Amino acid sequence: MNASATNVSSAHASVVIDQVTKIYDARAALNQVGLRLDPGQCVALVGHNGAGKSTLIKLMLGLIRPTHGQVRLLGEDPAGAHAARLRRAVGYLPENLAFHPSLTGRETLDFYARLKGVARTGNADLLARVGLEAEAARRRVGTYSKGMRQRLGLAQALLGRPRVLFLDEPTTGLDPALRQVFYEIVQELRAAGVTVLLSSHALTELEGQTDRIIVMNRGVKIADGTLTDLRHLADLPVRIRATGAQAGTVAEALGPLARVEPDGRAVECLCAGGDKVAVLRRLTSLPLADIAVTEPSLDELYAHFLRREQAA
């Protein structure tokens, strides 16, 4: 799905960005961006530094207003008269965390709960859920590692059971096990109908974790869709690698697409996504030990869309 085809109707949407432009000092940080985020959906927002991701999040939070266009959060203006009430329904994890070093983890979370106007009764369980058990929760934040501060930031974002959650580089500093825990939490939130927006440079780990991916470049939305949508739109080649049969036989079946690897044990080919099934049919008639099919990664898709935009 491309940018111009996106339906930004506000019906039942958690967030609607309707043809929004934001200008700073005669420079457009965003240029006629339109998108919507729905309940129970996890959306990845990707783009290099300066692409407009932070400006979009600030608009959704109501911290700034658009120069042109309209922003709606849960059906209302996030910077309007009901901004304080709306923010109780929103969780936000900023990219750069700053907590008071003299407070403990538990005291920090209690402080943010009071600030947000929500109960503190579940804070111990919330800290434990993000990997800050009782002993860690009693330590001063000044002694925390970067990963521990990131976990505390995630707990802060989850206060009050938000309906909409904005997470900016949420897995920075987390080890692989804790990244898995983080995505388990995201899946639970999606199942509960929460809207989750992830802004991240860690493209590889986003594959399989999000419903949609929005690609930004220089303040413009250049792609928006599922990973399957983006692969279809980019039409990058699929890599197929076959092992087990005589290399010459495999190469003959694949024709000019084939490349025999130097050791002669495997044959590889690149083919268009639309030709993948036909190639696999030819290979399945051979006595193969294995067939590996590698679709274009999100990193490759992202690079492709940037190159296409620059060429245009």
Results as ranks from 00 to 15, higher is better:
100 H>N: 09
82 H>Q: 14
117 G>Y: 07
27 R>P: 00
173 G>A: 06
187 Q>C: 02
196 V>W: 03
75 G>V: 03
199 S>E: 01
231 R>P: 14
119 A>H: 14
191 A>I: 03
202 A>G: 07
235 D>V: 00
53 K>A: 03
54 S>Y: 04
77 D>G: 05
23 I>V: 14
150 Q>H: 12
107 E>H: 14
181 V>P: 01
75 G>K: 10
236 L>M: 03
200 S>F: 00
28 A>R: 15
202 A>P: 02
148 M>D: 09
138 R>F: 05
272 A>P: 05
56 L>D: 13
181 V>D: 14
305 F>D: 07
140 R>K: 15
50 G>M: 11
43 V>K: 09
19 Q>W: 01
272 A>Y: 02
37 L>N: 04
299 D>L: 01
2 N>M: 11
81 A>G: 11
33 V>M: 02
220 V>P: 00
285 S>Y: 05
149 R>I: 01
163 R>C: 03
217 N>A: 14
295 E>D: 15
92 Y>F: 15
213 I>H: 03
147 G>L: 05
166 F>N: 00
33 V>N: 05
256 P>N: 08
164 V>N: 12
215 V>R: 09
262 P>A: 07
216 M>Q: 10
307 R>T: 08
267 V>D: 12
312 A>H: 13
213 I>F: 00
71 V>Y: 07
15 V>K: 05
162 P>C: 09
287 P>T: 04
89 A>C: 11
249 T>Y: 01
252 E>F: 08
177 A>M: 12
208 G>D: 09
25 D>M: 00
44 A>V: 02
310 Q>F: 12
120 R>M: 13
295 E>K: 08
21 T>H: 05
169 E>F: 04
133 E>W: 11
186 V>Q: 04
217 N>T: 02
259 R>C: 05
74 L>R: 06
284 T>P: 02
122 G>A: 11
9 S>N: 15
190 R>G: 04
11 A>I: 02
22 K>N: 09
123 N>Q: 10
57 I>D: 12
144 Y>S: 07
194 V>N: 10
207 E>Y: 02
226 T>D: 03
181 V>F: 01
131 G>P: 08
115 L>M: 14
21 T>W: 03
33 V>F: 00
43 V>L: 15
190 R>T: 01
123 N>V: 07
41 Q>K: 10
130 V>K: 09
